[in-house]
């Protein structure tokens, strides 16, 4: 059948390999100082969350009516005590677990679902695209804060409903980005050439489309992590996400707000953690974006 019968006479000798796209991106990213600092901060936060029980000096749930609202630097309470006399340092360390989870998990799940919706709509196009994207637009039309509050309000308070509502909030923006990137890639000649080779739509998406669209979608998704953390904190603050006495930065911010005139520094600490974490994710995302922008 083939004009060139692959003969055993020509052995496939290992060819000189050029570094692939992603190794180039990582190399560029590693030269970006700001992104690297952000990466170290995030790594530290993640390690802190994983090993919280071993790092935390005290039990984050143990309250003491005698030691309420101690200032920063009190012996035994390096970062003070909260309104129930619990150790702030331990609560902040343990709080990283829920806060990071509420920041990362919804975005991660939405990245998966939104990419599938967007890539399918973008690749199939036509009426399917119109129908899918207009449905997505209905959700997109709500301000994200309002949608998150409405959904978790309807689902009831709790970690699971908080995660679910945040996931639903992030699917539309990710699907939109995925759709627009895929629509662009689909028109490029190498996809046309793949179609002309007789490959199925699924194979073309797997080999030629995903590799060129997942990067940009991923960068966009990482920029949503900070938004997700802030929204999750907001939900907790409103009493819709995590319930007391769980340590979570947003919830801590809420319960400490009455103490803002008594111990302003202690009350501001959870806010500072949210700030540092979201800034770090944003800077890493920016670094990734510029590292991926390789002009050939």
């Amino acid at each position: 059948m083939s004009l060139f019968s692959p003969s055993a006479a020509v052995p496939v000798v290992p060819a000189e390999r050029s570094p692939g796209y992603w190794s180039l991106v990582l190399r560029r990213l590693s030269r970006d100082k700001v992104a690297m600092i952000a990466f170290v901060v995030i790594l530290a936060l993640v390690l802190m969350a994983i090993f919280a029980p071993y790092i935390a000096p005290a039990d984050p749930y143990k309250s003491s009516m005698l030691r309420r609202l101690r200032p920063i630097g009190t012996p035994g309470y390096p970062l003070g005590a909260d309104e129930l006399g619990r150790d702030m340092l331990s609560r902040l360390i343990h709080g990283a677990r829920l806060s990071l989870m509420m920041g990362i998990l919804p975005v991660f799940i939405a990245f998966g679902i939104g990419s599938v919706i967007g890539v399918a709509a973008g690749y199939i196009g036509g009426r399917f695209n119109a129908l899918t994207m207009r449905t997505v637009d209905v959700f997109y039309a709500f301000p994200s804060v309002l949608l998150a509050i409405a959904l978790s309000g309807a689902l009831g308070a709790g970690i699971f409903s908080g995660l679910l509502s945040l996931t639903i909030v992030f699917i539309p923006p990710i699907a939109r980005i995925a759709e627009s990137v895929t629509t662009q890639v689909r028109k490029i000649d190498y996809v046309e050439a793949a179609r002309a080779s007789g490959a199925s739509g699924f194979t073309i998406v797997r080999v030629h489309v995903l590799g060129n669209v997942l990067g940009p979608i991923f960068v966009y998704a990482t920029s949503l992590i900070s938004v997700s953390m802030i929204l999750a904190s907001g939900l907790s603050f409103l009493g819709l996400g995590v319930k007391p006495p769980e340590p979570e930065w947003g919830l801590m911010l809420n319960t400490l707000r009455n103490a803002i005139y008594v111990q302003p520094w202690v009350a501001a600490l959870p806010g500072l953690m949210i700030f540092i974490t979201s800034i770090a994710f944003n800077l890493l995302s920016d670094g990734l974006r510029s590292a991926m922008d390789i002009k050939a």
Binding site: D189, Y190, A194, S197, A199, V207, H208, G211, N212, A296
Partner: peptide, 24 residues
């Protein structure tokens, strides 16, 4: 196609681009 750059997938090696159709 006319555009030699646009007709090759930038994420695939030249070998992979050529081998795609026969593998399919």
């Amino acid at each position: 196609f006319q555009d030699s750059y646009a007709s090759l997938n930038p994420r695939l090696t030249l070998e992979d681009s050529i081998a795609f159709a026969p593998a399919v």
